[in-house]
């Protein structure tokens, strides 16, 4: 099914929230999924990979502890949390490259790398063992393959955009990816009761007159 980017973002936000992300990070996950989809990368699949692994885990243990290597106490690093900190400018990429360890679904770091690139008006290169990406904030070039977990990811200013990806206005994720995100999203919906049906939406006066 072809999704609008608005649908990608909405589904991603609910799915991230459904696995326990606080709203502010769920918003980041949603914008990141949309940013990827708008460049022909399946942001839904990237997020599903993350959420499948993160579901039921203590997300606090997936946060980075910035240092020489951004390593999470729990062994796995959340790309949304780490990416958001990077985009927030917790460190200045122009002064020093950043290495992260145990990054789950590392492709989700790219939208945040793009924010850094845009704010510094520079190119940012993201490398992992069998692939790399370069972005100027808007355009993305992506080479190699994207693992579910990258043992090490390096982000640095520089690089070259070799094959810019064409912009996309829709995303058709595989059915099982969409179903996975919908399953997580479903957790954000309160079960309906007769009371909520009548009262919660405020039936009030007749609506057939």
């Amino acid at each position: 099914m072809s999704l609008s980017l608005n649908e990608v973002e909405g589904l991603a936000k609910k799915a991230a929230r459904g696995t326990g992300y606080p709203w502010g990070l769920a918003e980041e996950a949603a914008k990141a999924s949309r940013w990827l989809a708008a460049r022909g990368v399946d942001g839904c699949a990237a997020l599903a990979t993350l959420l499948n692994m993160a579901d039921g885990q203590d997300l606090a243990a997936w946060r980075p502890v910035p240092g020489d290597v951004w390593a999470p106490p729990g062994g796995h690093l959340c790309p949304v949390t780490a990416g958001a900190s990077l985009a927030d400018g917790l460190v200045d990429l122009r002064e020093k490259a950043v290495t992260m360890a145990g990054v789950v679904s590392p492709v989700l770091l790219l939208p945040f790398a793009a924010q850094v690139a845009a704010s510094h008006n520079a190119l940012v290169k993201v490398r992992w063992h069998n692939g790399s990406a370069v972005t100027d904030g808007d355009i993305l070039s992506l080479e190699g393959s994207v693992p579910e977990v990258a043992e090490q990811v390096t982000l640095a200013v520089g690089g070259e955009i070799t094959v810019p990806r064409a912009p996309c206005s829709r995303l058709t994720p595989p059915d099982e990816t969409k179903a996975c995100l919908e399953r997580f999203a479903h957790r954000t919906y309160a079960p309906a009761t007769e009371e909520s049906r009548l009262k919660g939406a405020g039936a009030g006066l007749s609506d057939n007159d």
């Binding site: 709203w23 954000t188 919906y189 309160a190 909520s196 919660g200 405020g202």
Partner: peptide, 26 residues
Amino acid sequence: WYVSEEKLEPRLAERFEEEVADYEQP
């Protein structure tokens, strides 16, 4: 404020009378 499973529409609950706090929208 919460979103109902039934029609995916935003609704408003009485927090202390209905069990919707886990589903609260921002």
